Computed example of a mutant assay.
Amino acid sequence: MSERRTAIHSYPTFDELRSRRLAERRAAAVRAVRDAEKVAAAAGGRLVVFGSLAEGGFDERSDIDVALMAVPAGRDGDVALDVELALADAGFTADVIPERFLSESLRNRIAERGIEPGALG
């Protein structure tokens, strides 16, 4: 009599699935910000990421918070919109704030905890 083998399936837990999905979403957000950075660079500017993507806690409901730096007033609004649209095309809601509209407290937070897209892990 031959012995029948029964495959034992090990299904991932909810926490494992969620963790995997969040890691994939975060990686997609990092790629999207790096791509959007090219829009800012073409205008002579740069992006600095702050909020949950830079500081931790990025989840299913998180948006992407980005400061647009070094783009002259008069052009910064159009460039911010182009960056926002690039992030939207990648499937993310974003707050893109031109440097001249940063409050002092937000400017300080960005200086302390902001991360340039290339340095996002």
Rank of each mutant, 00 (worst) to 15 (best):
E16C: 06
S19C: 01
G56H: 03
A32T: 08
S19M: 04
E16A: 15
R18G: 00
I115W: 07
V79G: 04
L87Q: 11
A86S: 15
R4H: 04
D63F: 08
A88H: 08
A7W: 09
F92K: 05
D15I: 08
L85Q: 12
D35T: 15
A41I: 06
V49W: 10
G77R: 12
G74L: 07
E104R: 11
V48M: 09
I97F: 01
A111L: 09
S52F: 06
S2G: 10
L106G: 06
E3Q: 10
F58T: 02
R26V: 04
A90V: 05
D78R: 14
A23Y: 09
R100G: 00
G56C: 05
V79K: 02
E112P: 00
K38P: 00
S103F: 05
D82I: 02
S52R: 14
T6M: 05
L106Y: 00
A27E: 10
S105D: 12
L22V: 02
F58M: 00
A111C: 02
G121P: 12
R25W: 00
L17I: 11
A7S: 03
E99I: 11
R46L: 07
D78C: 00
P98F: 08
S62Y: 13
R20S: 13
S62A: 06
V30K: 13
I110R: 07
R31L: 07
K38D: 10
G121R: 14
D95L: 11
N108C: 00
A7L: 11
S105K: 05
M1V: 14
A67H: 01
I110K: 05
D76A: 10
R107L: 07
S105A: 11
V79E: 04
E3L: 15
D95G: 13
V39T: 06
D15K: 14
D65Y: 06
E84L: 05
S2D: 12
D78I: 10
A80S: 13
A42C: 01
D65T: 07
D59L: 01
L87H: 13
V83F: 00
A27W: 05
E84G: 06
E55A: 12
P117D: 08
M1F: 08
R25Y: 01
V30D: 04
G57Q: 12
L68C: 01
A67N: 03
V33N: 03
G91T: 11
L106A: 11
D63C: 03
G44E: 02
L120D: 07
F14T: 11
V49H: 09
I115Q: 07
D95S: 15
T13H: 06
A119Y: 12
D15M: 12
G57A: 11
P12R: 14
S105W: 11
R4A: 12
